[in-house]
Write a protein that binds this DNA or RNA. Structure first.
Lengths: 179, 179
DNA sequence: CCGCTCATGTAACTGGTTACATGATTTA
DNA sequence: TAAATCATGTAACCAGTTACATGAGCGG
């Protein structure tokens, strides 16, 4: 029933998050996005709350009222249909754009570095390299923290992020050398 | 003097593209996005044409009517203010989110791979690894083609994309090994 | 002359953001 | 008890997408 067209990226990510943390409040999901070192989604309330209601209405999430003290709230868990939807979202050979080079704001900027004076270019590259190193340290810590403790998925994700950042820093050095 | 708030990512990319290819039609810009191995922006007409008009109205692009045969059309080039805006977009130490881990649809999916059966997981990883290798070959070709010929910026961008893809493939192998 | 690609646009939609509003709970 | 944070939500906005419309030029 319910022709249920595919999930958007954010929907997929939220559904997956709920699946892996269930039972799970919208607030917890938001936090997850907010503390993530990958700041693509703001995890704004205006995105998350309506989205989870939507998933509930589509029968992919089931909500139970949570009453801690006098606090209203809902905890979500995926339904059977929700799990199926998640699998259908991940499972089949992903469309090309999923495999394609991810968009990268840094790469875009570097592409037009030629518009800057030599001095500004140097300053840019220096600042970026140090900023990148900071980020790497953060993700590295996150990576170590999630090691072992049965959080394999988290750890692997962090590893992925780390490898990505390192590749970028390496590339940055190439860029600097080439100028 | 139009307080000219900052440029969006797409605006920055378009302005940069026009700067590096000027004089340049909107259509050429679209094509650039469409053939890019990084398929984040569709390069849809509905995005590009209004955007470039906007930049023109803000005084960042200057348009000259192009008449080839009986064909209407506009060629754009950045104005002095446009170049300044481009520099201001790239130049200063970029905000943290530019340096942060770029969002990656593949990483998101892998994060929830645990929702799949062992067999499906295997199938997924196999399909992704081969798809990734295909993409790598494509970018590699692009990379070689842009070598030398004074297209340093293009080449470096392609290199960046290539390193990113390779890091991803390496990571994929880790994922497979860890399961 | 038919269909394909080049080329320029517009209109409706939509998903996510910003900014705001509200109240409960914890901490200084 | 005041300030901070937890927690839930809404409303207006906006950038980019999809889908459509139009017409020029060109290859068969």
């Amino acid at each position: 029933m319910g022709a249920s067209r595919g999930l958007t990226e954010l929907e997929g990510a939220v559904l997956g998050l709920v699946w892996s943390r269930a039972p799970c409040t919208p607030y917890a999901v938001r936090r997850e996005f907010q503390v993530s070192p990958s700041p693509f989604w703001s995890g704004s309330a205006g995105a998350i709350y309506p989205l989870m209601r939507r998933l509930e209405k589509r029968g992919l999430l089931r909500a139970e009222a949570r009453v801690t003290g006098r606090r209203r709230g809902r905890q979500y868990a995926p339904t059977a249909a929700g799990l199926r939807a998640l699998r259908a979202w991940i499972g089949p050979p992903p469309p090309a754009w999923v495999l394609g080079v991810p968009m990268d704001a840094l790469r875009t900027r570097v592409e037009f570095l030629g518009a800057l004076s030599r001095a500004r270019r140097e300053a840019f590259l220096t600042s970026v390299e140090s900023g990148l190193s900071t980020h790497i340290r953060i993700v590295q810590r996150h990576c170590r923290r999630s090691m072992g403790k049965a959080k394999t998925a988290d750890h692997l994700t962090a590893r992925g992020a780390l490898l990505m950042l390192r590749a970028r820093r390496l590339w940055l050095r190439e860029v600097r050398a080439a100028r």
